[in-house]
Write a protein that binds this DNA or RNA. Sequence first.
DNA 1: TCTCGATTGTTGACTTGTCAACCATCCGCC
DNA 2: GGCGGATGGTTGACAAGTCAACAATCGAGA
Lengths: 182, 182
Amino acid sequence: MTTTTEAARVDRAPAIARAAAAVVADLPGMSAWRSFLHAHARITRRLDEELQAAHGLSLAEYDALLQISHSPGRRIRMNLLAERVILSRSGITRLVDRLEASGSVERVACVTDARGQEAALTPLGLERLRAAARTHIDGVRRYFLDRLDEPDLAAIESALERVADPLGPGRPTAEDCAPPEA
Amino acid sequence: MTTTTEAARVDRAPAIARAAAAVVADLPGMSAWRSFLHAHARITRRLDEELQAAHGLSLAEYDALLQISHSPGRRIRMNLLAERVILSRSGITRLVDRLEASGSVERVACVTDARGQEAALTPLGLERLRAAARTHIDGVRRYFLDRLDEPDLAAIESALERVADPLGPGRPTAEDCAPPEA
DNA sequence: TCTCGATTGTTGACTTGTCAACCATCCGCC
DNA sequence: GGCGGATGGTTGACAAGTCAACAATCGAGA
């Protein structure tokens, strides 16, 4: 995916703000949107760097491991995993390829559906996840949580949850397919 | 960059929430962080799709055009553009390559620095930007602004601006290099 | 029971970005 | 004036994701 910011503090020239005649009319809330994009780009880049440097994991890989670890039996259908980490099916195939090559995950045939595969966390993967979690959580705290106070956090959470939800028409969200009991 | 979500509503199983023993301890504000990532992933993907479908522009390309259009003389040093859209220098080279190939932008040698190049918006580029802006702004409104009320927006803006700002050590943020007067 | 459309995961071809190496130019300082 | 480290932009090699096509399997209905 392409992740970018929208506009970082549009114009900083003090008095000479000519020439840049506004080409597009800005909506009232647009600057909130911009700061949203900006904050995301900066923070995730930093978190990714730190995770990579300390544990050789990308943010996406960390996320996938975390999702698997949260699933019953510590394994999860490829399909569902893709949805959880917001990746295409081919994307998840390749990500799991990498995790498998590094020994963090194993592919297991699904018992109830011969088409299916499950990604199962290995002991090594669990260990790596635990180590990486410290780095990651620490980063989130430093770059995100520590800069916000309690009301901020509450507001952001409730607001963005509302924003993320169904998102109207588009990719349907299957939420079924629980693994066959650990 | 790798953009992913962190955890999407961790467990939805009603009573049978066993087996998934929490592997990593969650900080108090972590769910705000998750909704932040989730919202970003969903919305930008959607906006990108719509922009691509309607105007053949990626979100990054749109953003670059917008940044150029906001710069004095409607041209901007590659360097600064890279910073504004949060891309590496090579990334911006390639993005401008594409925009140039499509006729939306021209490269102009920088008058004051023989090493420099500027990306200048062409009339065609301006036209395309104007058209795309409608689609984009409409999308932001539908997916973001309309779902938030005024206090939400204010809170998000101030909070995330604080979060995005210097971000401690890391890539320095040069903010100089204004184009040589339009 | 068989058939046929839907679903699952993988693959090949491609896109878009990164990093590291490169050359040209700039500019403070001897 | 000229040297040498910093800076600006491009390039090659690669990383990680997308889409479209595919084979295997599922499962509802004739």
